[in-house]
Amino acid sequence: MATVATEERAPATSGLRLRWRVLISVLVVLHLAAVFTPPFRFASRSAQGEASPVADAAYRAFQPYINAAYLDHGYFYFAPNPGPSHLVRYEVDMGEAREPLVGVFPHIEPDRPRIIGTQQPRVIYHRHFMLAESLHANFTPPAPPDDLPESAELRQAILADWTRRRETYEVLKTSFEQHLSAIHGGRPVRIVRLEHRQPTPQEFLGGMAIDDPRTYRDLPEVLSPGEMP
């Protein structure tokens, strides 16, 4: 873009030819539409995962640019509610004679100042935290939903979606297990998703600490009927 010498009057736009201004205007409108579309689509999603057709159409139109420029974000920080944390516990099989080696990531040592943590620097601790959150976010039950619609077309679409989601979860989980196995001398590793909820204000006032063992629970890989992932 050309650098334009300022004139004394505002707005001093005359240094830029009309055709350049039109071109730049078109480009900024298209770019901002591409920035707006992913969070709009994300916000318009229903509980069933369907987004507004307008948002879907806009997303399809801008998808190459959105994906290539890393603009595919929902910006739902701590939304709709600040929820529980998700962690990963791993168990390394040390052979028959020894107890399995157990670890959790992200890893916190309660005795160390929280601002320092154990996975250094703090941003790296947060990367491990995000890996654990990401595994949970991709969790899909091993069996397809049992309340499939009667329409063959819809059923096929739901099954295809379930297959894709389940495969994503499995490749991610396997990748984590292989990484942990590699850093522990190739021993077999099993990972379990953990959920750590915050105590309610009443529980906290009643003496429950924010790292109370009762606030942790193992998340099942197979869901019982009616249970949400």
Partner: peptide
């Protein structure tokens, strides 16, 4: 409260 009481954050 739920943001501040999150042990991991």
């Amino acid at each position: 409260w739920y943001a501040l009481a999150n042990y991991e954050y």
